[in-house]
Amino acid sequence: MSAMFSQNPLMNGPNYSFNQAPATASGGNTEHSFYPYTDNGGSTLAISGNDFTIIAGDTRSTSGYSINSRYSPKVFKIGGTTSSQDDANLVLSVVGFAADGEALKERLDAIVKMYRYQHGKPMSVKACAQRLSTILYGKRFFPYYVTAILGGLDEEGKGAVYSYDPVGSYEREQCRAAGAAASLIMPFLDNQVNFKNQYIPGSGEGHALQERENIPLPKDEVEDLVKDAFDSAVERHIEVGDGLQMLIITKAGIEEKYLPLKKD
């Protein structure tokens, strides 16, 4: 007689001999085995100076332990009028899920291009930074799985770096490392760019120690810092390597440098 009790827990107890459960619900939710994200590894880094900004990224693209490509840039010029982006004044770096990064880059680029077309002047970094935030937040519930960094020169000609989380919260910073080796590079930057934990020798004991004065670094010194940061990251992180791409923004324009990194 147990078969008189339906399998359906909602209808336990004496029941009709046929199943009266609603014909549409087949019981339980279908499990989605498709996961729309992946991590393509790599790291990016941006440092702003008095009259320049440097944004850099390695050029390795990975899937798990495999290397997809040794040259797959994640630092892009944004909003130029030509396909070569020669006259661009903004730089975007994206690290995380490369397909989302590419989509985000193209969307921002189209928006900045339309801005120039409609207003007859290039977009400021500040405006672009705000806009990028709203783009990311617009996909709050299906985010672009990327850490973005936007760089350029502000209205006063000073270097500007804006960093983001995947859903659009952002702030302007002196420097920022993102991606796979962010946790390796960022402390190095804190120490070498913002002089954290550097004190003037013999200036006191304990908390009385005087901090080293914070001065903006010159461009060539920052370039060397970037190289060192990546050489170190390559040594200790398997997803970082192959090549280092650096975009250096000054009032003269954007200079691109490529340096080989270890390919192991």
């Binding site: 008189m4 339906s6 014909a23 279908t30």
Partner: peptide, 25 residues
């Protein structure tokens, strides 16, 4: 068919207006 003889009737084949299905594998 009687449930007590043949088990609960599987009416799943009757459903044609179910949720849209996407490739999962």
């Amino acid at each position: 068919p009687r449930d007590d003889v043949y088990g609960a009737y599987d009416s799943s084949y009757l459903q044609n207006g179910g949720p849209t299905q996407h490739t999962q594998r």
